[in-house]
């Protein structure tokens, strides 16, 4: 399979404030990319813009999947086309069982032309598949009956996101700090799970601060984001360098981007106040 996700000169604004200022990125099916960068550099924004969050306004540039321009597509169209994002903080949906949610999601993604109200994947068949995926990911079977992310611990949420990724088998997955808030063992498990589900079976864009999540997922490409742009791209060794030595070198090498980053952080704080 050869699929390409291409991001060209992407500019994104949130509530009128520019965050991304010309991002270029190309990912092929089967590749693993790491996206790193200091806080506020725009990593999550890139993920959410690719996923189609309505509050992330694309002011210039394009996102295309296999040559088709999906810049204006709704989030659900993108999901059906094979774009997936594992959220840093997935929301809870009280009253909706995880199994029911995933069954509906999987049906829509696997049958992109399904009309509302048409049958879902047969219950028995779906349960069997879900059960085996949960076993593979070492997730307790009781999980399926719990309400979506409702009362989940940080680790449970992240594993639920990986389970969702497993059930939807997207062409491209963006994993937004799937290691945040997890202890060392949990990160290890998450890393192994991502490799098991995703490696060579999709394109992976792993947003992270650390290299632990990359342990089982050595990136062919590491991108460093600063001030809303990708300022440097390298291999796995770049991820290691950033993990070991931080962003000092990057900040010094790209003063313009660093200034933009500081400006964005300042704005964020002003908003937070």
């Amino acid at each position: 399979m050869s699929h390409i996700l291409r991001i060209e000169n992407l500019h994104v604004a949130v509530e009128g404030k520019a965050i991304l200022r010309g991002v270029n990125l190309e990912m092929k099916f089967g590749e693993t990319h790491a996206l790193m960068g200091p806080n506020g550099s725009g990593k999550s924004t890139l993920g959410l813009a690719i996923a189609g969050h309505p509050n992330y306004e694309i002011t210039a540039g394009t996102i295309s999947l296999d040559g088709e321009d999906i810049t204006e597509w709704e989030a659900d169209q993108r999901a059906r086309a094979g774009i997936f994002m594992a959220f840093q903080r997935p929301v809870a949906i009280p009253g909706v069982k995880t199994a029911d949610f995933l069954r509906h999601a999987a049906t829509n993604v696997r049958r992109p032309d399904r009309k509302e109200g048409e049958d879902l994947i047969p219950m028995r068949e779906f349960r069997k598949e879900l059960k085996s995926k949960m076993e593979q990911l070492k997730i307790d079977s009781e999980f399926a009956r719990r309400y979506v992310n409702d009362g989940f611990s940080g680790g449970e949420m992240k594993r639920a996101e990986i389970l969702t990724m497993a059930m939807l088998s997207p062409k491209f997955s963006i994993l937004d700090e799937t290691d945040s808030g997890l202890d060392a063992d949990a990160v290890k498990l998450a890393s192994a799970s991502i490799a098991e589900i995703g490696r060579d079976k999709m394109g992976l864009l792993i947003i992270t601060h650390h290299d632990k999540l990359l342990e089982h997922n050595p990136p062919q490409f590491t991108h460093v984001m600063l001030g809303g742009r990708i300022v440097e791209t390298g291999g796995a060794e770049l991820a290691r360098e950033l993990h070991d030595h931080g962003y000092e070198r990057i900040r010094k090498t790209y003063p313009d981007a660093e200034a933009a980053n500081q400006e964005m952080l300042g704005k964020e704080e002003a908003v937070a106040v």
């Binding site: 969050h53 999901a79 059906r80 929301v91 909706v96 949610f101 509906h104 999987a106 829509n108 509302e116």
Partner: peptide, 27 residues
């Protein structure tokens, strides 16, 4: 945010709202 989350999992907007409403009544 709930609607977007469901949409990012392939639910149409109306399906998402319907699911959220059903969940709200589930109790």
């Amino acid at each position: 945010e709930l609607i977007f989350y469901a949409q990012s999992r392939g639910f149409t907007r109306v399906e998402a709202v319907r699911m959220i409403v059903t969940g709200f009544f589930q109790q």
